[in-house]
Design a protein around this nucleic acid. Structure first.
Lengths: 153, 153
DNA sequence: GCCAAAATGGTACTTTGGTATGAGCTCGTT
DNA sequence: AACGAGCTCATACCAAAGTACCATTTTGGC
């Protein structure tokens, strides 16, 4: 796909070149006519043509490079927006996840008791279960792991 | 500063233009000499000069844009590398910060002992001190706070 | 209705974490 | 030399976390 875009870009620039060259030839013919009509000397003629061509060249070079840059930027943006949160990654139950969130906020077990209206031993059970599922052995590791796998932001 | 760099870049491109124009004039004189010597017609002469100038223009435009891009990239890189860890933000001592980093990685106190070659009571002392400085009461809160204030990434 | 998963809860115990208090040593600054 | 900051360490104590084991109830899917 990106290769196709690059090829397309190459063909486009070629066509552009061709069109520009055609215009340049027309300008040259016109200037030649003026040249003959007003008898401009050769150097003046060349300076005019040269300036036009130089300016065109710079513009073209600039434009080609801007296109390259735009493609790169788009590529990066789409990469950044892809990481979705995988909710069932570690098979945590709803309640286990509730407990995990509060742990991550720095709640003690007792504070979680007060927040979820359950007993201390239930908090410990959920906590222990989620550690097992996340394959960790303490709260900080659990929080780190959960963030790492996208379970928590 | 960035404005100064941009101005500098502008001056440089002007000098470059000047130098190129000088070269072009020399080439024109040389071709005129050839023109006279070999009696090339005017259109051939123009085609040669025109091609050279167009090519030069494209090259220049490309180069200028590359410079712009390079500056942008450097600007981003320097932004990314600027967030230094503010070592004394919360007035943590070096040792306290060492302990904090390990806590943040999920290390138990005993594991920190083994990592830093100090006693358990020293770990506890540093830990307690850093909690006080960060105004928190447990490890998870300490880690969260440290990340929040930019002390840890 | 049956069954598995989830939620809840208790008990006992060990491990880990955190606080308070005190002390000694080194180094840099005044 | 005096002083403060930082590092280190010990002791004592309690709180909190975590594990193991067991049990009952609830919920959701078939």
């Amino acid at each position: 796909m990106e290769e196709a875009i690059k090829k397309s870009s190459g063909i486009k620039s070629m066509l552009l070149y061709g069109a520009l060259l055609a215009i340049i030839l027309l300008v040259m013919q016109w200037l030649k006519h003026k040249f003959v009509a007003y008898e401009l000397n050769t150097e003046t003629y060349l300076a005019i043509v040269g300036s036009i061509l130089l300016g065109l060249g710079i513009w073209l070079g600039n434009r080609l490079n801007t296109r390259k840059q735009t493609q790169k930027t788009e590529g990066k943006v789409s990469e950044n927006s892809q990481p979705r949160i995988e909710f069932h990654y570690a098979n945590l139950s709803k309640r286990e996840f509730d407990v995990l969130k509060l742990i991550a906020s720095g709640y003690s077990n007792q504070a979680i008791v007060d927040e979820l209206f359950i007993s201390l031993s239930t908090v410990k059970t959920h906590s222990s279960n989620l550690f097992q599922k996340l394959d960790v052995s303490n709260r900080v590791m659990a929080v780190n792991k959960a963030k790492e796998i996208g379970l928590l932001v």
